[in-house]
Design a protein around this nucleic acid. Sequence first.
DNA 1: CGCTCTATTGACATTTTTGTCGGTAATGTC
DNA 2: GACATTACCGACAAAAATGTCAATAGAGCG
Lengths: 200, 200
Amino acid sequence: MSIERAARVRRSPEAARENILAACEAILLEQGPQALKLADVAAGAGVANATVLHHFGSIDGVQTALMTRMIRQLVQRIAVDFGQHQDAVGRVGAGARALFDAFGTRGGARLAAWLELTGEARRMTAIRQAVQEVAALRMQLDSPVDETAVQDFMLVCVTMALGVGLFGDTMAELLGRPPERIREIALDLIEARIRQETGG
Amino acid sequence: MSIERAARVRRSPEAARENILAACEAILLEQGPQALKLADVAAGAGVANATVLHHFGSIDGVQTALMTRMIRQLVQRIAVDFGQHQDAVGRVGAGARALFDAFGTRGGARLAAWLELTGEARRMTAIRQAVQEVAALRMQLDSPVDETAVQDFMLVCVTMALGVGLFGDTMAELLGRPPERIREIALDLIEARIRQETGG
DNA sequence: CGCTCTATTGACATTTTTGTCGGTAATGTC
DNA sequence: GACATTACCGACAAAAATGTCAATAGAGCG
């Protein structure tokens, strides 16, 4: 019997990078950032180690590209969700909901935690831009009294969404409560605050 | 000139372990979990690599011991803070405050995030025990209507405390708000909920 | 087809990190 | 002081992870 060698796949540079980063994302979500080893990434993508290095230069390059990609996806998802609401009343609640969705799925919160732990949290500037744009939008549309109050409030929303997205499931399981409960209550707190602000 | 060799320090096994784990904790807080290398830990503790291994067997043993130690400290801190309040009214607010303190300082939230990312979140069972004890205590003292409501609420408090503790400072800086703001608003949300629950 | 370009690769080199081992030196005990 | 115990260390070995390089092979183009 002859030795069969898998036919070599040749992709465009973009497709090759995409393929590798997708594998990285899966590893990050399933095993955490410390499992992002060159060999594992290459194996996950179905290519040789050297191929990964050819496209990204180093394992750090891979990580940087992964962060960038995930942040871009995250911001885009938030923007889309937020843009879908037109009425002033439901917009804030829907915005909060969009935040919770964005960070609760596809590893958004895990990415943020990774950045935080590795001291690369400055990379999240894209999030800042998005939040500030949204804040400006709300000022324009709903014209609430205090601008800093709006910013403060959005700040807390983002932080809560991150916390729930990262720890929610584990905490719920740990304490024997249904996983969606945390999110419900957190959103409830937020909406109560909104009613208080706008209503009286 | 003769070669001076620093006098060898000999500690009790407990003190030696303590010394090493303290160095680990500093590294974890300053540089993140990925920086917990054997050589760095040994250097931080002022001992040889082999000494670290002598006491913990392997670098994994070091990490496990560190987790255990930090969790123990964390739970103890929460318990102390919580036990200081006697009146039923302020207890919940004070409890929430204690939670925020515990996770916001000394890397409690960073530890939790690390456990979460590495998939070792089950180690946090000590936290579960503490929360359940506190919930039982509150049921006994304040006898609110619904037990699951109390549990749900504490669950959200813990998750929010974790989120604020881990992401609060970065998010505040990122959005140009004072760092203590998040904590204030979050506690405000919680206390509003308490008033709503108990008051009407 | 012949040619160029470059994504891809296995084999190898380098670096980093972890772990082993025999010996040394504090400390307590008799 | 003699001895046993063991925390401690330097030097080295092993393993793991990253990175280099020359050669190979798809794909487009004349």
